[in-house]
Structures are given as C-alpha cells and as structure tokens.
Design a protein around this nucleic acid. Structure first.
Length: 585
RNA sequence: GCGCCUGUAGCUCAGCAGGAUAGAGCAACGGACUUCUAAUCCGUAGGCCAGAGGUUCGAAUCCUCUCAGGCGCGCCA
C-alpha cells in the first residue's frame, strides 16, 4: 500500500536535503479537521534553523513544493503546510490491497519465526468464573489473535490457579462437611459453598487454618488422598470452564497451571541459593530487593512450602526452555503490579537476560454497584449468566425486529456474546470499571451489535446485487471474471468514489493495518475496536447518503467495491477481537 | 506511612513521545423509513480537561505540589 507519509517526506527532502528523513517523518501530523487535508507539516521546529517565523516558513515551503501524483494539493495554512492526498489514488491503493489480501488485509510477516507467549484467563479452580475474569480472558484472547495475525507464533497459556493453600482449605472443608454426590451434580457452586463455610467457621476456630496448611503440605508431598481429591476438584472445574470458553470461542495451547510446576520448584530454590540471592528471614527464605526500592520477595514460607512467586519463577524458566520466547506476556490485573516487578527483578538478578522480554499487561478492576466482588461473601456475577442474559436479550430484539431471520439462535448467540466481548475491548485496559447490566446490554451506538449490524447491512447489499467476490463485481460491466491482481482494478473508475462520505470510508480502511500494529505495540486491543467503530460510522453515513444499487454500471461497480471492502475489514477486525460477524441479523 | 494507577460533557470513554476551534457514544430534546436492514442517519443542547504553581512561542498532554478515588506493600493467590 502507498505510504503517503513517506511520499510527503520524499517530496520535502527533495527540496530540503539538509534534513534527515526520520526527523521529518516524526513531526508529520494528522490535521484535526477534514477540510484541513490529510497530513500536515508543522513548521515551528524549523524556526530556529531558518531564523524566521513559522508562518513565513510555511508559506515558503508551500511555495517550493509542487503537487504531484500523490498529493493533489499542498496548502499553506499559517504555521502549517497541509497536504491533500490524491483521493483517486488512495481509493485505488486501498481497494487493490483489500482485493489482493482479502481477509488477510492488515496481516503481516513482522513476527515470523518469533514465539510469543500470552498467558491469560487463569481462573482459580473450584471457584466461580465471574465477570472479574472476563477482562484477562477477553483481552488476552484478542492479543493472541493480534500477534498471530502479525505473523508471530503464539502460545496461549491458561495458567490455572490449581495449587496453593486454598486447596488445603477445600480438602478440609470437603472432608468435614462435603458430600461427593452433591458436588458432582453442581460442582462449582457446591465447592464454593464449602469454601465459604470454611472461612466462616475458621473465624471462630483458627486452628482450621493450620489444618488447611497441613493438607496443602501433604498435597505437595504427594499424599495419595490429598492428590485424589485435588485431581477431582480440578477435573470438575475445568469441565465447567471449558463450557464458558466454548461459548466465547476461546481455546488454549496449554493448561499448564501452577500445579504443573510443583516438581520444578526445588530447582528454582537451588538456583537462587547458588546465585547467593536467598536470605533467611524469620524462618522464611526471601530475596531482598530493598536496593531496588521494593519489598522482599518471599520464596518459601517458614514451613518450607512454596509461594505464588516461586511457581511463577519456575514457570518463566520452564517457558524459556520450552518455547524460547521472544516475548512472554502476562495478562493479569494491575493489583499484581508489584508481584511482577519483583518476579522480573529476581529473574534479572539470577542472570537471565531474557527477563526483559517478560511483560506484564495490567488492567483495571471490575467492581459491582454493591461493592467489590468477593467470592467469599457470595457477591459475584457469574460470567455465564452475563453471556446468557445478553443472548436472551438479543433473542427478544430479533423477535421484534426481524422475526423471519433464519438461524435465529445462532445469530442471537453471536450478537449477544459479541456485545459483551466488544464492550470489554472498547476502552483502554488500565481503567477500573463498574459492571452495569444496562451498559452490558446496550446495543446502540458504539457497541458490538452496531458494528455487526453494519457488516450485515453490507452483506445484504452485496446479496441484493448478486455479488459475492471482487471478481463478481469486476464482471459487472465487462467480460472479465477471472483477473489478475492489480490489472483488473484498472477497469474501475475510482473517480466515482470522491464524495466526502466515500472518501472517509476509504481513509478508515487505509488506517486499519496501522491500528493493528499499534494495538500490538501498546498491547491495547481497543485500538482496533476504535478503528472498526469509526469505519462502521463512516460506512453508515455513506450508506445513508448514497444509493449503491444504481443503474449506471460503473458507479454501481465502484460503490459495490467500497461495500465489499468495508465488509471484509469489519469482519477481519471483529475476528481479531474474537467476535463473529453474522451475515444477517 | 511508602509505592503504583486513575481523575476530560449528566453518564461511559477517545485524545496525553506538547501544536490549529478539546472529540465520540449513551441519556435529553427535535427531525428522517411506500426506495439497498431505522440495532441506522441528521440536527440541538451539553466543557474552568480535579485544583494550584512551573517549563515552553504553544500545555488536557511534560515537571512539582495539593485534593479525590482505586490498588498494592512477609508466610493468600
């Protein structure tokens, strides 16, 4: 695709060769308003060099640059020189690229040969999968898709919370009050009840806590009874989780959770010992990080059992050995900022230069109107309920608006679940947010259903026109049905796509690939969400303003190309976010 | 107490390696369906960018302080 920024630099450097390409490229901006053109060169920075007011410099630069095939106009606007790209050319370039790449438009080979680990979701076994887990799950999944699309080899790891003292607690609770049959029937809620009961009773009888630690120790030492129970808790929980992942269309390459590293812990402790990093402190072993302005990292408890960070260290080392990652990404809430800082620092101190390739991607908390979520207090919103409610609401809307729709149930699921996922991916990660049913179930404006609706609308026009592919459209006013990339597009009149509304659609599609790269660089999927919302808005405006299925075959052809490109890009964008694009809704 | 994060329209948020008149959506109000899906589109209204200082030709954006909220800070994960 034509890079107009580069072309601008070419044009400028040709006259002003005393500047570096990079420094010019860096200052190019996008003007705040449409009537100011597509790119702008601010002249403030030149003031010192030319010893003149920016206004005058702009005037002079403008006079020295002549429009060419890439820029149809170059305008002096105060301290800025503004560039208007050749609309016909950009239309052609964009459409040609979508035509050649199809649903791979925006993809890249940037990451070829590089392994990227994305650790996400990682629920705790025997606890409900609540909306607190939705963020890591959805953001992580989108990131994995994005890296993959850019050519990286991705490894999606669900680092299950399937180990730790909590299982000691659960074993104690189950042995004291539990009943196998009841748990089998409705595993997670029943296990949750046991867990809650444990905490209630333990407030009066703190010796239960000791008992729990005792059982966890037994588990670590391979006690048969403890192991059997643990295995069973894990199996029934995983079965439930997988049902939810399936609803959301998410899968993993590995479910190696904390327990997976239980036999790799000693090696870590030995290693840290060897490097002289370990210190005894009140019976526990720590790595002192005072020098780095951090509290110490607790590696083993005074009873010798391991902790969270120990397992995470073991996991990181194992992953480096197994996958030789280029990046090891942890999609985990911002509450754990300190934990990851400590852990990465310990890796660095242990002499692993790849510690710098470990990246924590934090995100804000989800809370409920009635306060912070607390599984212990039973203050939870189950993710499955949220998804089901969204599907239910979609069913109602379909019954009202489109009762003759085929595949109603499938569409209801795609749209309902899409709405939830989309909402999750429409803000920057770091902000905390309040879960509200109203927002989650709102389907108008900047929402998933809006974007999906736009896609369905585009599909519907294409269907009415009787075209499916680019070749179908090229054939409209000519004989060619099979054509080579690049050539066929010559028989389209791009001058027919110059209206402002059409041009906005083209521009939006032009920026789609950049938005994917940015989303990867910043690990912010919402940048893609933003991009396709803007595309949908631009398209809907165009759609409203201009009829597509017009008599004039050349105009019809050009407009249909715009529709097809929009459809493809929206579909690709949604797919990256993990959302389906129904053709009718 | 110390550390990290957040504060932009009534609400939810963009914009923050400084740049032109601070943008969307929701909610409110008013318009547009015998013509390609009205889950749409158009318009009106809504702002001391938390506050105060500073740096700069220029600050929502950078620095300092203050205020408000969230999170974290040794035997949970």
């Amino acid at each position: 695709m034509i890079d107009f920024k580069e072309k601008l630099v070419d044009l400028f450097i040709e006259k002003y060769n005393q500047f570096e390409r990079g420094e010019i490229l860096e200052i190019i901006e996008i003007p705040p308003q449409e009537d100011m053109g597509d790119l702008a060169l601010p002249c403030f920075k030149f003031a010192r060099v030319f010893r003149k007011a920016p206004n005058l410099i702009a005037e002079e630069i403008c006079a020295n640059l002549a429009s060419n095939e890439y820029f149809q106009e170059i305008r002096n606007m105060g301290p800025y020189v503004n560039f208007f790209v050749n609309k016909e050319l950009i239309a052609r370039s964009v459409i040609n690229n979508v035509y050649v790449q199809g649903e791979r438009y925006g993809s890249s080979t940037l990451g070829e040969g590089k392994n990227v680990i994305v650790e996400f979701s990682s629920p705790n076994i025997a606890k409900p999968f609540s909306i607190a887990h939705i963020r890591t799950t959805v953001i992580g999944h989108a990131l994995r898709n994005i890296y993959k699309f850019l050519g990286f080899n991705t490894i999606a790891i669900n680092h299950l919370g399937d180990y730790g003292t909590q299982f000691g607690k659960l074993i104690v609770a189950f042995k004291t009050w539990g009943d196998r049959e009841t748990v089998e029937k409705d595993p997670i809620p029943e296990l949750l009840k046991l867990y809650v009961k444990f905490h209630d009773v333990a407030e009066e009888k703190p010796e239960l806590e000791d008992e729990a630690r005792e059982w966890f120790k037994k588990l670590e030492e391979g006690d048969e009874e403890a192991y059997q129970l643990w295995q069973w808790f894990r199996d029934v929980s995983l079965k439930e989780f997988n049902r939810i992942y399936e609803m959301m269309g998410i899968d993993f390459d590995s479910y190696a959770g904390e327990s997976f590293y239980s036999d790799k812990m000693n090696a870590v402790i030995e290693l840290l010992e060897e490097k002289g990093l370990l210190k005894d402190s009140e019976g526990a072993k720590i790595v002192d990080l005072e020098e780095y302005n951090m509290p110490p990292a607790l590696i083993t408890k005074s009873d010798g059992s391991t902790l969270y960070i120990t397992r995470d260290l073991a996991a990181a080392i194992y992953r480096k050995q197994t996958y030789d990652f280029y990046k090891n990404i942890y999609v985990v809430g911002s509450q754990q900022n300190l934990h990851f800082q400590q852990m990465f620092k310990v890796l660095e101190l242990a002499g692993f230069d790849w510690a710098k390739d470990c990246i924590h991607i934090p995100f804000g908390m989800v809370s409920l109107e009635e306060g912070t979520m607390s599984t212990r207090r039973g203050r939870v919103v189950f993710l499955e309920d949220v998804l089901n409610k969204a599907v239910e609401k979609t069913r109602e809307i379909i019954a009202e608006k489109n009762p003759d729709l085929p595949d109603k149930e499938k569409v209801a699921r795609e749209v309902g679940i899409g709405a939830i996922l989309f909402q999750e991916l429409s803000h920057s990660r770091i902000k905390d947010y309040l879960f509200s049913w109203d927002t989650a179930l709102s389907f108008e404006g900047e929402t998933g259903p809006y974007v999906q609706y736009t896609h369905a609308r585009a599909c519907s026009v294409l269907e009415k026109a009787g075209v499916k592919t680019f070749a179908d459209i090229f054939a409209i006013n000519g004989k060619e049905t099979t054509v080579e990339p690049g050539r066929a597009l010559e028989n389209v009149d791009y001058g027919l796509l110059l209206e402002d509304e059409a041009y906005q659609v083209i521009k939006q599609i032009y920026t789609f690939p950049e938005s994917i790269i940015k989303a990867m660089e910043r690990n912010e999927p919402f940048l893609i969400t933003r991009n396709i919302i803007d595309l949908a808005q631009a398209f809907n405006k165009f759609y409203h303003e201009y009829p597509i299925l017009v008599e004039d075959p050349e105009l019809r052809k050009a407009r249909l190309l715009l529709v097809l490109c929009t459809k493809i890009v929206i579909k690709t964008g949604l797919k990256l976010l993990g959302i389906e694009s129904p053709e009718k809704m």
